[in-house]
Amino acid sequence: MSKQTHIIIKELLKEFKYTQSDLAKKLNVTQASISRYLSGQMQIDIDTLKEIANIFNVSTDYLLGRSEIKTSEETTNINAFHSISTDGLSKEEIDLVKAMVEQLKKKK
C-alpha cells in the first residue's frame, strides 16, 4: 500500500530541514493549515499540491504516493535507460547487463 500524502510531506520537511512554518510561508497559508494537512484533518487542494511539488522538486504522483520516482529527472533517466539499444548483443550479454543493473539497485 502506498504512503499517504501527509506522511510523504512530513518526510520531505525533514529531508529539507523545513518547519511547518517555513512551508506555510512558502505557500502563503497559515501554519495551522499546514498542521491540519499533516495531521490528515484537511485535504490539500490540487493547486496547493502542485505548489508543494514545486517547492520540494518532486512530482505530484510522488506526493500522492502513486510513484516512488520523486522527480522528472529520475523519469528522464529511466526513459533514457529503456531507450538504450541492445542491437548486436546476445541474449547472454543482455542478461548480464540486467543483472548488473539489479546489483547496482541492491547497493542503494
Rank of each mutant, 00 (worst) to 15 (best):
S2M: 06
K3F: 04
K3V: 03
Q4S: 09
Q4P: 04
Q4E: 12
T5F: 00
T5V: 05
H6G: 02
I7E: 05
I7H: 04
I8R: 01
I9L: 02
K10T: 14
E11D: 09
E11W: 02
L12V: 08
K14A: 12
F16Y: 11
Y18E: 04
T19K: 10
Q20W: 15
S21T: 14
D22N: 08
D22E: 06
L23E: 00
K26G: 03
K26M: 06
L27I: 06
L27S: 03
V29F: 01
V29Q: 01
T30I: 09
A32C: 13
S33Y: 04
G40N: 06
G40Q: 03
G40L: 04
Q41H: 12
Q41E: 09
Q43F: 14
D45M: 09
I46K: 11
D47Y: 05
T48S: 07
L49Y: 01
L49D: 00
L49V: 03
L49W: 01
K50D: 11
E51R: 09
E51P: 06
E51G: 04
A53Y: 02
N54Y: 15
N54L: 08
F56T: 01
V58W: 00
V58D: 00
S59N: 07
T60W: 04
T60D: 04
D61I: 00
Y62P: 01
Y62F: 06
L63A: 02
G65F: 00
R66L: 07
T71G: 05
T71N: 05
T71E: 05
E73D: 13
E73S: 14
E73H: 14
E74K: 06
T75R: 09
T76G: 07
T86L: 09
T86F: 08
D87C: 11
G88Q: 07
L89I: 14
S90P: 11
S90N: 10
K91C: 09
E92L: 10
E93Q: 12
D95C: 08
L96P: 11
M100V: 11
E102Y: 10
K106R: 11
K106C: 12
K107R: 09
K108D: 07
K108R: 12
